[in-house]
């Protein structure tokens, strides 16, 4: 156990170094490509030069200060006060992010669970019927969804939802935001929430379940032809039993690693979906940051995503170790 903790600690230290280097690089990249000064210069009436400089200095965004100096100050604030800086408009990045994580989690949690369940089941189902019509149909459908741009998919779903709304004359689906009911009744609130979350959930579920489906199918097909499945059949298991008892178990290991990775993405959200459905989550925040030259905000989102990615990687390692006896913890 002590050895395991030691291993874990070593891994985490490595990840922290990685995040540090990657985030620093992102900071320099953002400073090179974004110009908060233009936010002020394009304002009408144009503020005085002094006030522009003052505002930029206050947010530590002045491009006249050497970038290394800005970087030092930025880093010091994070390390000493966990303060990720200010937007060009002077708002705290910390506050903005914490107010948006909730929306992302609400959006992503349901679709992540659904896409894992649906994707993996379809993968198993189609692999067992390789080259039969069920496999051709579902896998063909999946590969079409795999390549359709998210924007197109989302727009088409919105389009049809609006059509349905118009045909029925009722607002069954809401296509923007996460809620519009503000009253005290819990059930009306819940239904209202579901009406809002349904379409983005469908979009996200389709996008990520096709990945699980096609991967799970490949993994299971690989394992189905393994020698040990033949041994199991030679013992007296039917082909179906041998696949279910032996091949399936092995094929779930790489899938569970993928699942671990996706858990982290719950917090970072989905950029395109949030933008299209006007959900104020992390993804939308990032796009706003980019469009508003909010260097500190963009770097903070990037760092947060990076941390989530590495958390996913760590989880993936642990999942694999727990499931595969060949990988021993100690």
């Amino acid at each position: 156990m002590a050895r395991f903790l030691g291993y874990l600690a070593k891994r985490i230290v490595n990840y922290i170094v990685m995040i540090f280097v990657a985030t620093s690089l992102t900071y320099f990249l953002a400073c090179a490509f974004m110009s908060p000064r233009s936010n002020y210069e394009s304002r009408t009436p144009r503020p005085s030069q002094e006030s522009i400089e003052a505002s930029l200095d206050k947010a530590n965004l002045n491009d006249k200060t050497p970038v290394t100096e800005r970087y030092q100050r930025w880093l010091t604030n994070i390390v000493t006060e966990w303060n990720w800086g200010l937007s060009p408009a002077g708002d705290s990045v910390n506050n903005e992010i914490s107010s948006r994580i909730g929306a992302s989690v609400k959006l992503m949690l349901l679709s992540t669970i659904l896409s894992i369940v649906i994707g993996v089941s379809l993968g198993v189902y189609t692999a067992q019927r390789q080259y039969q019509w069920q496999d051709r149909f579902w896998s063909g459908l999946a590969s079409v969804f795999l390549v359709i741009p998210t924007v197109v998919l989302a727009i088409l779903i919105v389009f049809f939802a609006i059509e349905i709304n118009q045909q029925t004359g009722q607002r069954i689906f809401y296509v923007t935001g996460l809620s519009s009911y503000d009253g005290p009744n819990f059930f009306i609130g819940l239904i209202d929430f579901l009406q809002h979350i349904l379409l983005p959930t469908i979009v996200l579920t389709i996008i990520s379940s096709v990945g699980y489906h096609l991967n799970q199918r490949t993994y299971l097909l690989d394992e189905m032809h393994a020698d040990y499945v033949r041994t199991a059949r030679a013992k007296g298991l039917t082909k179906k039993q041998a696949i279910r008892k032996h091949a399936l178990r092995a094929s779930l290991i790489p899938t569970s690693v993928n699942v671990a990775f996706s858990i982290a993405s719950i917090f970072t959200g989905a950029v395109m979906t949030e933008k299209i459905f006007a959900i104020h989550g992390m993804g939308e925040y990032f796009i706003n940051c980019i469009n508003n030259n909010n260097i500190n905000g963009a770097v903070a989102v990037a760092a947060f995503s990076g941390a989530c990615t590495l958390l996913g990687a760590l989880l993936a390692d642990l999942f694999a170790a727990a499931l595969d006896p060949r990988i021993k913890m100690s």
């Binding site: 393994a226 020698d227 040990y228 041994t231 030679a234 013992k235 007296g236 298991l237 092995a250 499931l323």
Partner: peptide, 23 residues
């Protein structure tokens, strides 16, 4: 499958891959 393993059984070439690694 009722006959395999009970009345006819088989030993394969590569013992390294003939057993299920997970069990």
């Amino acid at each position: 499958s009722k006959i395999r393993g009970a009345r006819i059984s088989m030993i394969f070439q590569d013992p390294l891959s003939a057993l299920t690694p997970m069990f």
